[in-house]
């Protein structure tokens, strides 16, 4: 059994069913268009439901139906493979962080930092929010020397502010807290 395919199929099936239910709530009342606004999303939902069931069944059978593969076996060379590869020993050497493997900790740290960024932008304004969050992201990504961290956060914040707000005249969020 391909557990990832079965689980992702179940999640997609749930989404398809939710979409079908939501589509059924869309009013259907135009004189010229008998199909109405619910027709297309319902069609899409049915498609998702059918493909999700197919994904679950093939996942249970541990079958992976690959795409057309224009270029023969080389055509589906995964992009992941094409990316830089990190030696296994380097990953293994990393100590766990907060009881979880370091890569996962960095991932959650980045997501949390970004979430905080979107929440505090309107409170503290672009400059303060960026300085705080960019500092956190640089540290989480692995740079621990204080001066490069501070210089990096200030440089990225300043260059983006200068480009977008000064040169292109964009309205960046200003602090509402102070």
């Amino acid at each position: 059994m391909n557990r990832a395919n079965v689980l992702s199929g179940i999640v997609c099936l749930a989404f398809g069913l939710l979409l079908a239910w939501l589509a059924s709530q869309v009013p259907n009342f135009t004189m010229t268009d008998q199909l109405g606004g619910r027709f297309f999303p319902m069609l899409v939902a049915i498609g998702i439901i059918i493909c999700s069931i197919a994904l679950i069944i093939t996942g249970l059978m541990n079958v992976e139906i690959a795409g057309g593969q224009v270029g023969g076996k080389h055509a589906d060379v995964p992009e992941e493979e094409a990316e830089e590869n990190t030696p296994e020993e380097i990953i293994a050497e990393e100590p766990p962080v907060l009881g979880m493997p370091a890569p996962r900790a960095r991932l959650f740290g980045f997501i949390a930092s970004m979430a905080v960024y979107t929440l505090i932008l309107n409170w503290v304004g672009y400059i303060v929010a960026s300085l705080i969050v960019f500092t956190a992201m640089i540290v989480i990504a692995g740079e621990r020397r204080p001066i490069p961290v501070a210089a990096g956060a200030i440089f990225i914040t300043a260059i983006l502010y200068a480009l977008f707000a000064v040169i292109f005249g964009m309205n960046v969020p200003e602090a509402s807290l102070f």
């Binding site: 199929g9 498609g47 998702i48 994904l55 795409g67 057309g68 224009v70 055509a75």
Partner: peptide
């Protein structure tokens, strides 16, 4: 084409349409 699993490719497409 060039997807590891054709059903996943179609589901991605349909989610985009949704």
């Amino acid at each position: 084409m060039a997807t590891k699993n054709v059903f996943k490719g179609i589901i991605s497409t349909l989610v985009g349409l949704a």
